[in-house]
């Protein structure tokens, strides 16, 4: 029994929480004033949109694909939210629903034509960017008041971001890891032939996961606009790589359907905090991206070590 509790598998599951804790402690050590409601709010301000984008990416990674268009897509959603959704909410909602359908269709196309998802989504990223520029050629627009109100709502105890992120993480965890159909969705990543042989539609699973990714992309764009109040077509381009890093940091793997929704949200938060941490360290922004890469390498190295001990134990 004890062997089961201290098994590498448990360590692997705890690693994302561990990384987040370490970076939080480091920040509090460097800047004790951050240890307050206001401080946390500032630190985690942008964590929610990144967490949503990471969940979107995770959905695609679950079925062994990769989405290189999520950043541009979130940017497009932000532009639509700052224009149509504010001016004519009905049309705005319709466009956003259309986006989700388009994502589902993308999944169908990739599966049916057996196309590499990287190529298709990379192409789509230019499509979304172009659309965003059409909607909003220059930075501007205005976030709908209700979005603004939700995103700046003052919750008791800890900032809203933490409540929202925990709720979403638990919800997705339940949907993918605990529900009966979630098993099939993850099974497609593990061994699509086996799922097909059991009589399930792999097409349906892929469309579901891509549509979910589209949905979380919409959530990411709307929450982002609620924080920034105005939009820009390029606002979220870096989300593509951030989201991939977040999934991997959260214990997910590129292939094989091994994912963790809670880990992904923790990974997104770790990445958000890593930026602040590096600022506190007075590392110039020029070096920050490199330093973020360094943090990623450290965490992945830790995971590799855990995996290796696991392999040794099972031998």
């Amino acid at each position: 029994m004890i062997a089961r509790i201290v098994s590498p598998r448990v360590f692997r599951g705890l690693l994302p929480a561990f990384s987040l804790t370490v970076i939080l402690i480091a920040i509090f050590y460097l800047q004790p004033r951050a240890m307050s409601y206001f401080g946390l709010n500032l630190l985690l301000n942008l964590a929610l949109p990144i967490a949503f984008a990471t969940l979107a990416q995770m959905c695609v990674i679950t079925v062994n694909d990769l989405d290189l268009g999520i950043g541009a897509y979130v940017g497009f959603v932000a532009c639509v939210s700052a224009t149509w959704l504010n001016d004519q909410p009905a049309i705005g909602l319709l466009i956003l629903a259309g986006c989700i359908v388009a994502y589902g269709a993308l999944g169908a196309l990739i599966h049916l034509r057996n196309l590499p998802s990287i190529v298709v989504t990379l192409g789509m990223s230019f499509f979304w960017l172009g659309l965003a520029l059409l909607v909003l050629p220059t930075p501007g627009g205005k976030a709908p008041d209700w979005v603004r109100a939700i995103m700046t709502f003052k919750t008791p105890g800890v900032p809203m971001t933490i409540y929202a992120a925990s709720a979403v993480a638990l919800l997705v965890h339940f949907g993918l890891k605990r529900s009966a159909y979630g098993v099939v969705l993850r099974g497609v990543g593990g061994n699509p032939r086996s799922v097909e042989r059991a009589g399930w539609s792999v097409l349906r699973a892929k469309v579901t996961m891509y549509a979910l990714a589209g949905f979380f992309g919409v959530m990411s764009g709307i929450s982002l606009i609620g924080l920034t109040t105005a939009a820009d077509a390029n606002i979220a381009l870096r989300y593509t790589l951030l989201s991939i890093a977040g999934v991997i940091l959260g214990g997910g793997e590129f292939v094989g359907g091994r994912i963790s929704p809670i880990g992904a949200v923790l990974g997104a938060m770790t990445l958000t905090l890593a930026g602040s941490f590096l600022s506190f360290m007075r590392i110039s922004p020029d070096w920050q991206i490199g330093a973020q890469g360094g943090i990623l390498i450290v965490v992945l190295a830790l995971r590799a070590i855990i995996n290796r001990t696991e392999a040794r134990q099972s031998r």
Binding site: A180, V183, R186, G190, N191, R197, A198, R258
Partner: peptide, 16 residues
Amino acid sequence: SLCPNLTVAENARIFH
């Protein structure tokens, strides 16, 4: 033809 990323019980669920 099992899914290696799922548990034993989850693989039974895929089948049924």
